[in-house]
Amino acid sequence: MPIQDYKDLNEMHLDVLRELGNIGSGNAASSLAGMLAKAVDISVPKIQILDYNEVSDALGGPENMIVGLLLSLSGDVEGMLMFLLQKDFAHLILNTLLGEELNDFEDIDEMGISAIKEVSNIMTASYVNAIAEMTGLTINISVPDICIDMAGAILSVPAIHYANISDKIIFIEDEFRSDSDRAVSDILMIPDVDSLQKIMTNLGIEI
């Protein structure tokens, strides 16, 4: 039975996606560790099929200020990828690469924005490359668009994009941590329904 809606995914499908997230984030963590010259840990990815409202709660509440980077996926897999950095993670990047303290998001300058974009670019590319390699699919990613604002407002963008497909949204969420300080960021990979099908088929999974 073809997948029509994210609700149609069963436990096995979710396990497959979790594993893809695992591999992608492992790769992304190594490139982050290389860039920052620091150890980076990842936790087991969470796969969640959520209502939009639950998603912003999972990110610290709708009004929590975060950095959001939006990339579109094209090629064999279409969809969106969002890289979301909590403030402590943005601080980690700026502090390690530029020696700057981040007290307030208002204070990030051009240089800081560009450092964050660069790190995100490399991390998301390694994430997607690992998944492309494993599935044998061609996945291109666009350069990231950046937005620093309330989590709810940033998430309205993928929510709207997928609103006509489902009232649920699938989030493959990976958490990266570095230093003894908790510095958390998440990658949300949101493949279109057709692309999910292709991923499953290419991995030999019966739909």
Partner: peptide, 12 residues
């Protein structure tokens, strides 16, 4: 609002 400046995706 337009949250992301250069979104090329037609649906958004």
């Amino acid at each position: 609002a337009q949250m992301f400046p250069a979104v090329t995706n037609a649906s958004i």
